[in-house]
Design a binder for these strands. Structure first.
Lengths: 326, 326
DNA sequence: TCATAAAATAACAACGTTGTTATTTTATGA
DNA sequence: TCATAAAATAACAACGTTGTTATTTTATGA
C-alpha cells in the first residue's frame, strides 16, 4: 500500500537498515548513499509510519491537550499559542474536545508523552486521578488535595492588582462582574480574590454573578449593575468575553469609559488592545503562560519526575485606556 | 514499563495470543478463560497500544480534522458536533490547528483513515493537492477544478431563501452585510448569491463588506449602514458572529427588531434561538451538516472510492422573531 | 601487494499487537 | 476404554521501524 523503507531500499539498492540510518541522517552512512536514499524517498513520496516508530522507540513526540469547553476567546488564544510552541519544539499536539477521562484514555492509547489538562469543565471539580503513567500537567488552581502538577496563574493576586490600581486612582466604589462558580475553580478564585482585596482595602464588597462565561452573560449582568441608582465608579470583569458584554451594556446606558466608569478586565491577551476602547487588563500574559505550560510539561516528560509541584505565575497589569482617576 | 498482553498472559497463565483473542471477545476462547483474562487485564490496568494495533491491522479508526481558524462560533459548534458523532461511531478524532499541509502530513504519519478539511483558511484558495492516499473530504464550495470530494452547503440557495422570505413579507430595500472575500470561497458564495437573488427579484443590490468575520467586524459595518439617511427595511447577515454585531449596532441606533428592521442571519445553529431577539436564520442545520460530513468520510474510507464527488446540502430557513412585514 | 584497520553496509532482533497454522486438551460414542 | 472429532490453546509470522551486532568493502601503509 503506502511506501515503506523497504521499498526505498529495493529501489535505491541498499538494505532497509541503511535506509533507516540514511533518513535519520546517521553518521554511519556515506554522504553519497545518504543523498541517493533521501532522493528516492522523496521520489516515492515516503511518509514515515509513526505507529512503527512509536512502537520501537517508545517515543511519540506527541502531547495531548484536553479542552473540555471549546469556546471562550482567551482559551482559544491559549490553545493556538500552545500549539505554536509545541510545533516549534518539534513535537506534535493532538487535541481532544471530549471529557477528561475519555480524552486521557484515548491519549494513552496514542502513546502521547504528556497531557495538558485544562481544569474547570462542567463535570469535575477535581480532575479525577487517572491511574496513568503519562505525565499530566493541569492548568488550574493550586490546592492541597490536587493530584497533579499545576500551573496556576494566581488569579487572586491578579484581581488584587486590579483593585490596587483602581484604589490608587481614587476609586472606592468598585464592583466585580464575573462568575461565582464552585465548580470552576479558576472563576471561584477571582470571585474570592476580589472579596479579599476589598476587605483588605477596607472597602465594601459588591459583586454580581454572571452565571456563565459568554459575552452575553456579561452583558446581562452589567445591565443590571448599571441600571442601579447608585452607580459604581469602577468595574472589574472576570474575563475578556464578559468585558465585551460590559462594554456593550455601558454604551447602551451612555456611560463613557473611562470618563464615567473605569474598567479593568481579567485576561492578559493582545485582543484587549484592539477593542474600540483599549482595556486595562490583569493576568499572566498569554505568551508566558503558554511557554511555561509547554516547558514544564516537556521537562516533566524528560525527567520522569512525577513529584507533585505547583507553579504560580506572576500576574501583570497592563494599563491602557479604560481606567482614569475618579 | 506499561502493561502489555504478555504481562496479562504471564499473570493469568495463558499464552499471549489467547489473551489477544480473549480481549477481542473472540469465539475461539472459552468463556471462562475470557472472563479470567479480562479480569486480570482490568486489575493490571492494561491500556492497548494503538501503535502496535495500527501497525498490524493497518486500521487506526482515527480521523483527522484540519481546523485552520479556531474562532467563529458556528465552526466551533460544528467541530464539537462532529466530534460527538465520530465518537459515537467508535472512531477517534484528532484535531490540528496548523496549516492544511502541515496538518495533513502529520495526520498521515498518524495513519489516520480519513481527513476532514475546512476550506477557507487565510493562505489557500484551493486546497493544495496532497499526494495523499488518505481520503480527504472538504467542507467548502463545489467547483470544477476542485481536487477533492466536497460537502457544499449551497450558500447561494440559502441566501436566496433569505431574500425570498423577506420579499414575501413586502421588503424591497434589503441590505447584505458580510465578508466579500475572494480568498474564502464560502463567504464569496454568500456575497454573490445575494447579488444574484436580488437581480432575480429585480431589486437594487446593496451590500457592505465587513472585512472580517468577527462580531466586531459586523458591528462596525452595521454602524455604517444604519447611520445612512435612507435606511434599509431589512438586513441579511453573513454569519452568526456578524449578526451579533448587527444586533448591537441596531440597539445603539434605537432600532427595534423586527419592528424597524428585519434581520435574517446565515448559520442555522441552535444559538440563534437563545439570543435576546430570536433570529430568523438560513443555512443547513448544523446537525445535518455534521452527520453528512462524518457519514461521507466514513463511506469514503470503507469503499476506497476515490471518485471525485460533490454533495450539495439543502439549506433551510428557520423563521423566528426577527422578521416581520414592512 | 597484501595484511590490517577503518568505514560502510547488511543482517537480525525487538517493540506490542493480530491472524493463521500447529498442537494439545476435552468431549463423544461405540 | 480408546480412537476420533471438536474445542481450546499455543506457537509463529508479520506489520514498519530502530539500534546493535555481524559482515563486507574500502583505505592505509610498509
Amino acid at each position: 500500500m503506502s511506501v515503506t523503507i523497504k521499498d526505498i531500499a529495493r529501489v535505491s539498492g541498499v538494505s532497509y537498515s541503511t535506509v533507516s540510518k540514511a533518513l535519520n541522517d546517521s553518521s554511519l552512512v556515506k554522504p553519497e548513499t545518504k543523498r541517493k536514499v533521501v532522493e528516492t524517498a522523496r521520489e516515492l513520496g515516503y511518509t514515515p509510519n509513526l505507529s512503527a516508530k512509536n512502537l520501537v522507540s517508545k517515543k511519540s513526540r506527541t502531547i495531548g491537550l484536553v479542552w473540555p469547553a471549546i469556546d471562550r476567546v482567551a482559551l482559544t488564544e491559549l490553545v493556538a499559542k500552545i500549539n505554536e510552541i509545541v510545533t516549534e519544539k518539534n513535537y506534535f499536539m493532538i487535541l481532544s474536545v471530549n471529557s477528561a477521562d475519555h480524552a486521557v484514555k484515548m491519549f494513552e492509547s496514542f502513546q502521547v508523552e504528556g497531557i495538558l489538562l485544562f481544569e474547570g469543565g462542567i463535570e469535575n471539580q477535581l480532575p479525577p486521578l487517572f491511574s496513568s503513567s503519562v505525565p499530566i500537567l493541569t492548568y488550574g488552581v493550586a490546592r492541597e488535595e490536587h493530584p497533579y502538577p499545576i500551573v496556576d496563574v494566581y488569579h487572586k493576586k491578579a484581581i488584587r492588582k486590579a483593585v490596587e490600581h483602581l484604589v490608587s486612582l481614587g476609586h472606592s466604589n468598585i464592583h466585580y462582574i464575573g462568575e461565582n462558580s464552585h465548580a470552576d475553580k479558576r472563576q471561584y478564585e477571582k470571585w474570592n480574590g476580589f472579596q479579599e482585596a476589598m476587605v483588605n482595602a477596607q472597602l465594601a464588597v459588591n459583586q454580581t454573578d454572571t452565571n456563565g462565561l459568554s459575552w452575553y452573560d456579561g452583558y446581562l449582568a452589567a445591565q443590571k449593575v448599571l441600571q442601579q441608582d447608585f452607580l459604581p465608579t469602577a468595574l472589574i470583569s472576570g474575563s475578556y468575553d464578559i468585558s465585551i458584554g460590559i462594554l456593550r451594556a455601558a454604551k447602551e446606558q451612555h456611560l463613557r469609559i473611562p470618563e464615567d466608569l473605569s474598567l479593568v478586565s481579567y485576561d492578559n491577551i493582545p485582543q484587549m488592545a484592539s477593542l474600540e476602547t483599549e482595556l486595562t487588563s490583569v493576568g499572566v500574559p498569554i505568551e508566558t503562560l503558554a511557554h511555561t505550560m509547554v516547558d514544564s510539561l516537556l521537562s516533566l516528560i524528560d525527567s520522569k519526575d512525577t513529584a507533585h509541584f505547583t507553579q504560580r505565575l506572576e500576574p501583570e497589569i497592563q494599563i491602557r485606556k479604560s481606567t482614569s482617576p475618579v
